[in-house]
Amino acid sequence: MPDSIDPAARIGRVTLAVADLDATIAFYRDVVGLAVRERDDERAVLGTDADALLVLEADADAGPRPADAAGLFHTAFLFPSRAALGDALGRARDAGAHLTGASDHLVSEAVYLRDPEGNGVELYRDRPRDEWPGTDDRVEMDTRRLDVDALLADRAGDADGAGDPAPGGTTVGHVHLEVTDLDAAEAFFGEALGFAVRQRMGTAALFVAAGGYHHHVGLNTWNGRTAPVSGRGLRSFEVVVPDEAALEAVLGRLPEATVDDTAAGAATVAAPDGFAVRLVVE
Rank of each mutant, 00 (worst) to 15 (best):
E191T: 15
T171G: 01
T180F: 07
V250T: 03
M141G: 12
G168E: 13
H98T: 15
F195R: 00
A263Q: 14
Y28A: 01
L78W: 09
G157K: 06
G12E: 07
A150M: 02
P7L: 04
E248F: 05
E57M: 04
H105E: 06
A245V: 13
A97N: 04
P165K: 07
V259E: 02
A58P: 00
A50T: 08
V229F: 03
G12Q: 11
P272R: 03
A245K: 06
R43A: 07
S236I: 06
S236L: 15
R129H: 14
H216V: 06
A92F: 00
D183F: 11
G12S: 10
G163S: 10
D22C: 05
A17H: 12
A153S: 12
L182V: 14
A156V: 08
D164Q: 13
D41F: 01
F73M: 05
L251P: 02
P64V: 07
E109F: 06
G173I: 03
P2C: 05
T268M: 13
R144L: 09
A263M: 05
G101Y: 08
G190T: 13
Y213K: 09
A266T: 15
G134N: 10
L182D: 02
A97Q: 03
V240A: 11
P128L: 10
D137E: 14
A60Q: 12
L152V: 06
L34V: 07
T221H: 04
R91G: 06
A50I: 04
A70T: 05
V14K: 01
A249R: 15
